[in-house]
Design a protein around this nucleic acid. Structure first.
Length: 296
DNA sequence: ATCCTATCCTGGCTGC
DNA sequence: TGCAGCCAGGATAGGA
């Protein structure tokens, strides 16, 4: 599913075809896709805007638009400043790409560009969301730091992580999935990071020592960096890069989706269990179980 | 404070 | 072979 590396790949690959382009029109085919404002205001607010840049915060992508007038706006834009942000979340099956076809299968929203092509948002399961806002804070929930830095954050480091883990008392797996704790990790990269750090998914966060926190911080940075270099992970029919290719990081998985296969580190069979309703993959030998599993 | 469940969706898989 | 039923999975809301 699209997590930080997949969204980063989308942002990087959309920069070239989108930057400098003007949105000449917008279509919304599944109204629930537009989180805010209303679908009508969304369409109106985007028409005539030029893309000035793209960014990512956690699993959200951000398309930055200039203050070009939209129909009905006073000169300089609706607020005088005119800055606008098209913010989106791909959730599980969302895809964002520039296409010649304005409406490929499963298109939920489509934006005409001034070069005759179309920025297309596709989403089989309809969980993805788009929003048009002036400031990120209008639509983003509270998000933890960026593991690889950016948005004013340094990269994740062991000292900070150790303190943050001790300030909570939660099982590591759900805590690392919590976007308000750390932004960008999803089910795949949490499992991969915990395995690299040799930490059990049920370990209580406040019982991770400084060495464990250091290993975890390093593991998270490495896993995300390597996954970005491979353009993300594709293990089903869903995630594709904007260029239409599957990612390559699924070939590097050490535990995710490898139930029953040997752990690359110790050879023991990889196990799968449910933690907080999430499929969780781990090595029972080199990720030692906590003495008394945290919480009921 | 933390956990658990339901909800939103639908393609794909499982089992009969 | 056909089909009903189940499941995954990010985020969130509401209840325990």
């Amino acid at each position: 599913m699209p997590e930080l590396p997949e969204v980063e790949t989308v942002v990087r690959q959309l920069r070239a075809p989108l930057t400098g382009r003007t949105l000449t029109g917008a279509r919304v085919l599944w109204p629930a896709t537009v989180a805010r404002p209303s679908p009508a205001a969304f369409r109106r607010g985007l028409a005539g805007r030029r893309v000035t840049g793209l960014a990512r915060r956690g699993k959200y992508f951000v398309i930055e638009l200039d203050g070009g007038r939209a129909e009905g706006d006073p000169p300089g834009g609706p607020d005088g400043a005119g800055g606008r942000l098209l913010v989106g979340h791909l959730r599980m099956t969302g895809r964002m790409s520039v296409e010649d076809d304005p409406q490929p299968p499963f298109t939920r929203a489509s934006f005409a560009l001034d070069d005759g092509r179309h920025l297309v948002f596709r989403d089989v399961r309809k969980f993805g969301r788009l929003a048009l806002v002036r400031r990120l804070g209008e639509v983003l929930p509270p998000l933890g730091p960026e593991p690889l830095g950016g948005h004013g954050f340094p990269g994740l480091d062991g000292a900070w992580l150790h303190a943050a883990l001790r300030a909570r008392r939660r099982r590591l797996k759900p805590l690392l999935l919590d976007q308000s704790f750390l932004a960008g990790l999803g089910n795949i990269y949490v499992d991969e990071s915990l395995h690299r750090a040799r930490l059990h998914p049920l370990r209580a966060s406040d019982r991770v020592g400084r060495p464990g926190a250091e290993r975890l911080a390093t593991a998270i940075r490495e896993v995300l960096t390597e996954a970005i270099a491979k353009q993300g992970s594709s293990f089903d029919a869903f995630y594709r890069t904007p260029e239409g290719r599957p990612g390559d990081y699924q070939h590097e998985f050490r535990v995710y989706g490898r139930t029953g296969q040997p752990c690359p580190r110790c050879g023991a069979a990889i196990r799968r269990m449910l933690v907080g309703q999430r499929g969780t993959h781990y090595c029972g030998r080199c990720q030692r179980a906590p003495r008394a599993p945290a919480a009921p």
